[in-house]
């Protein structure tokens, strides 16, 4: 793909990303939601983040990878601990990066 085609693709990506962001804000703002829908929506952030996280650290493509040789899974523990204790996004991300970088450098995982 040349840069012009890439740019046109990006415009398409922008359109399909913006509509789901915009439409509920426009259409739902003047109505109050039923309790079950509100409760459902409150669950969404934790659910969507977990749905993206688990395959990212426990799989490689379609292959399940759970075990002590999986560096991404090992690094999740200190990252979670730091996030839980400090509530700092930056601290947690750095912890994860350092553990992964060290794991590769020292243990060749």
């Amino acid at each position: 793909m040349d840069q012009r085609e890439i740019f046109l693709t990006i415009l398409g990506m922008a359109a399909v990303t913006y509509l789901p962001r915009l439409l509920p804000a426009w259409l739902l703002s003047s109505r109050s939601l039923p309790w079950w829908l509100a409760a459902w929506l409150r669950n969404v952030p934790v659910a969507v983040l977990s749905a993206m996280l688990f395959p990212a650290i426990m799989a490689q493509g379609d292959q399940l990878r759970i075990g002590p040789r999986n560096l991404f899974l090992l690094a999740a523990l200190p990252t979670l601990l730091v996030a839980w204790k400090t509530r700092s996004l930056f601290g947690s991300v750095i912890t994860g990066l350092v553990v992964v970088a060290l794991g590769r450098l020292v243990f060749h995982l």
Binding site: L49, S50, L53, F72, T79, A83, L89, S92, V93
Partner: peptide, 10 residues
């Protein structure tokens, strides 16, 4: 992944 973990914990 690290960002996902931190956001879930928070």
């Amino acid at each position: 992944p690290a960002l996902f973990i931190a956001l879930i914990a928070v």
